[in-house]
């Protein structure tokens, strides 16, 4: 198994965490708003994208992201450099925020908020949109764990290790979870007659 890319990514992430993120977090812990602003700049787009993948509504995602970072600002003095990187910590907060959001509101299936890629071929675009919608629906019927691991892996392009940090589980557990999630997704797709 070629793990070179994964190792390189992990090493790069670790270097970034050590060299850039950690000093900023330390300053933010001391109440330095500018340092936290730099963290916001670094992670807000990524967290927003994660929220957007699930909510599929830009305004909602923007609001949730704002709440996540506001909570992070309040809580950062209690954050400890002890295992989970700051990025994973933010992801957890974002996920919790999202769960809270869906507890009080129904998820939207409005695709208009998403910037779909331009496609000159209208027919292909419609087909792609239908396929995407069917997939999104299938994803939406999965358990929260299954859905989260697939979204992080395939939409946010995180490695099993990074997902483990975000979900607070071991890497080997994530691999098993990923397999079961794919199996569940396959079943959901087949239960509706397959993708268009």
């Amino acid at each position: 198994m070629d793990q070179t890319e994964a190792r390189r990514r992990a090493a790069a992430a670790a270097d970034e965490e050590a060299g850039i993120i950690r000093p900023l977090v330390d300053r933010a812990k001391e109440g330095d708003a500018d340092a936290f602003g730099a963290l916001y700049d670094r992670f807000q787009p990524e967290i927003l994208r994660y929220l957007l993948v699930r909510t599929r509504d830009r305004e909602v995602a923007e609001d949730l992201a704002q709440q996540v970072f506001l909570k992070a600002w309040r809580a950062v003095p209690r954050y400890q450099h002890r295992g989970a990187p700051f990025r994973a910590w933010l992801y957890r907060m974002a996920h919790n925020q999202m769960v809270d959001h869906f507890r009080t509101s129904r998820p939207t299936t409005d695709l208009e908020g998403i910037d779909l890629p331009e496609d000159p071929e209208a027919e292909a675009r419609v087909l792609a949109a239908e396929t995407n919608e069917a997939l999104q629906d299938a994803l939406g019927r999965l358990s929260d764990d299954h859905r989260q691991v697939l979204e992080l892996r395939f939409l946010m392009e995180k490695s099993a290790r990074e997902i483990g940090e975000i979900m607070g589980r071991k890497e080997v557990t994530i691999r098993g979870l990923q397999m079961r999630a794919l199996q569940a997704l396959r079943r959901e797709i087949e239960s509706t007659g397959g993708l268009p």
């Binding site: 812990k29 109440g31 708003a33 936290f36 602003g37 916001y40 700049d41 807000q44 787009p45 927003l48 994208r49 957007l52 993948v53 830009r58 923007e62 704002q66 970072f69 506001l70 600002w73 309040r74 809580a75 950062v76 003095p77 209690r78 998403i114 910037d115 779909l116 890629p117 995407n132 997939l135 999104q136 395939f154 939409l155 946010m156």
Partner: peptide
């Protein structure tokens, strides 16, 4: 699956920075 690209929103950032300057932090 298409993943939306997002761009930073300067107005939101400015509002956020103004808000955290008024928001106290938790105790360690």
């Amino acid at each position: 699956l298409p993943v939306p690209e997002v761009q930073p929103d300067p107005a939101r950032r400015a509002a956020f920075m103004a808000e955290i300057r008024q928001t106290p932090q938790d105790a360690p």
